[in-house]
Deep mutational scan, measured.
Amino acid sequence: TEVDLHLGDITIKLKDVSEEIVKRAKELFKNGWSAEFVKKWIEEAVK
């Protein structure tokens, strides 16, 4: 499945990412993480 994760003005296309990771990524962004950091976190999380 593909998900578009909207973080501010940046959209990250996610492939084969669990709902849990998407939820967590949104929380991290809301908590002040930059979109770049969230993207890196996701990449690490799906390895």
Rank of each mutant, 00 (worst) to 15 (best):
S34T: 14
L7F: 10
N31A: 12
K15T: 14
V22C: 05
L7S: 02
D9M: 11
E2K: 08
L7G: 02
V38H: 00
V22T: 05
I12W: 00
K15Y: 13
K47T: 12
S34I: 07
A45Y: 12
S34G: 10
D4Y: 07
G32Q: 01
H6N: 09
L28I: 04
I10V: 12
L28N: 02
W33L: 14
S34A: 10
V22L: 12
A25I: 04
S34V: 05
S18K: 09
E44W: 14
S34H: 06
W33P: 01
I21M: 10
F37L: 15
W41H: 00
E27H: 06
W33M: 15
L14A: 03
D4L: 13
T1G: 13
E43G: 04
A45V: 12
H6V: 14
V3R: 08
K26W: 11
W41N: 00
K26E: 13
L5I: 10
I10T: 12
A25L: 05
L28F: 07
D4V: 14
F29Y: 15
K23E: 14
S18N: 13
G32W: 01
E36L: 04
T11L: 09
D16N: 13
D4M: 10
S18M: 08
G8K: 04
K30D: 15
W41F: 09
I21R: 01
A25W: 01
V17G: 03
A25F: 02
K26M: 15
K26I: 15
I42F: 04
L5G: 02
K26H: 11
S34E: 10
D16T: 05
S18F: 08
I10P: 02
I21K: 01
L28R: 01
K47S: 12
G8Y: 01
E19P: 14
F29W: 11
E20D: 14
S18L: 11
A25H: 00
D16F: 06
K23V: 12
F37M: 15
V22R: 07
S18A: 13
G32A: 02
K30M: 12
V38W: 01
K39W: 09
V46E: 04
K15I: 14
D9V: 10
I42N: 00
V46Q: 12
V17I: 09
E20C: 11
K30I: 10
K23D: 14
V17C: 05
L14I: 11
K39H: 09
K39G: 09
N31C: 13
G32I: 01
I10N: 04
W33N: 11
L28W: 04
G32L: 01
I10M: 13
N31W: 07
I21F: 05
L14E: 01
I42Y: 02
E2H: 11
V46F: 08
A45Q: 14
K23N: 12
V38D: 00
G8F: 03
W33I: 08
I10A: 07
T1M: 14
I10L: 12
A35P: 12
E44H: 14
A45K: 08
A35E: 08
A45E: 12
W41C: 02
K30F: 07
I12C: 05
G32V: 01
V3W: 05
E20W: 10
L7A: 02
F37W: 14
K23G: 08
E36N: 05
K30H: 10
E36G: 06
V38Y: 00
